[in-house]
Nucleic acid binder design. Structure first.
Lengths: 225, 225
DNA sequence: TAACCTACCAAACACTTGTTAGGGAAGGAC
DNA sequence: GTCCTTCCCTAACAAGTGTTTGGTAGGTTA
């Protein structure tokens, strides 16, 4: 009664380059990643829109055109979907961040690059970012999501050290509480994921430019000589 | 911490013959507000900490030292608790905002007053603000929570007009997208509820002061002799 | 004294939740 | 053809969900 017509989709390649062990019924981790990613993407959309707890596996299955039980052919559990979504997002995020940090530019250039990179990630992983924002606080308590805490520590260290370098180099103001500034910049950037829509009138780089202009120079008109 | 699980499978059919009886007294709306507020406060804490959907009425009852069913002596439903929490918060918020707006000060003073008032509300209604931040987006769709949408419109109007007045008066920069600036300021302020803890080392006014300093003047050092 | 009200408990109810077994259609491999 | 793998469906399960009903201890009033 509550089920819809399952949509048949033209199948793709049966990529099979690695002969499986005789272990039965566990294709989840090694199966063809195409359909897997597809399902994870739709799951991420629903998670982001309705919240993780309010999202039932039946809703995800609906959006994917299949039934709830069928999801368990691809994934171990609802929670493992969430974990994989967040993991792959953080992996890519840190790929970009590490590149920026290893460049060892000046503090202002580093901050600009971090902000720009962040908006690019929001552009590419809008759903994952929204989920991260909403749920990470409750998830870090679980052992399974301990990698979130580690990421947060790295994150804080990267931003704080950049800000402190800037204060030392006298390019950032010294009269501000650095931790407050950190939270200010961090939140300012990431909250954008809640309203940002890819394909809008502003590119990620353009948004980053304006945000940086506000954060660095403020919104007040400067007194001119 | 007594936890029982009396769930049973087999069906039962107890005698049930309760015809039209005089409707039971429903003191929910008119009862002594003391206990009511007490329960709403603990409910708000749990909602804020665990998220509305992840919070069961049994958890709320646990925190209040009673059983789940007993909550229904005071409230109609779980949802009505949420509604009352958000309603009373918004009522007080607009009490403060309207006072600021009716003063009709200059744009910069108005913005400063709005930000300061916002941090005061975060200080007084931390839980409600956190709930509002997390859940309002999904709630506005429901007719019951239409008052959230109305509040958002008023909110946006108040901030946007203040910013536009400031641009016209040449106290705020004209080269920025006003809507982007609005979201920037709005998010910057309210996200603070996610990490702010009352009784910390910074008073709401002090936090407002530093935030305003960053938003208005930026975090970069100004070039000055 | 009895009647009444307040604020709770105890126990269930109907429904939803994530999850699991078993099965089967489609298609390539042999 | 037969075998095997992939991918999904049908149909249930047990635990958990918000909520309702009836009852009751203790205080207040008549």
């Amino acid at each position: 009664m509550p089920t819809k017509k399952p949509t048949q989709r033209p199948n793709q390649q049966p990529a099979r380059e690695s002969p499986q062990q005789p272990t039965r019924k566990k294709p989840q981790v090694t199966a063809a990643p195409a359909r897997r990613r597809e399902l994870l993407d739709t799951a991420a959309e629903v998670f982001a829109e309705q919240g993780y707890n309010a999202t039932t596996v039946r809703k995800i299955a609906d959006h994917a055109g299949m039934l709830a039980g069928s999801l368990y052919y691809h994934f171990d559990s609802k929670e493992s979907m969430l974990e994989e979504i967040l993991r792959s997002f953080l992996d890519e995020l840190w790929g970009g961040y590490d590149t920026v940090l290893e460049a060892e530019s000046g503090p202002r250039e580093t901050l600009e690059a971090l902000v720009t990179e962040s908006f690019r990630e929001i552009d590419r992983h809008r759903a994952a970012v929204a989920i991260y924002q909403k749920e990470s606080k409750q998830l870090v308590a679980q052992e399974r999501f301990a990698f979130l805490a580690e990421s947060q520590r790295k994150f804080e260290k990267a931003w704080l050290s950049t800000l402190e370098r800037g204060v030392a180099a006298q390019v950032f103001r010294a009269d501000l509480d650095v931790r407050l500034t950190y939270r200010f910049v961090r939140d300012t950037v990431w909250v954008a994921a809640s309203w940002y829509r890819p394909g809008g009138q502003h590119s990620p780089e353009e948004i980053a430019r304006q945000y940086l202009s506000m954060v660095l120079d403020g919104i007040a008109v400067r007194e001119q000589p």
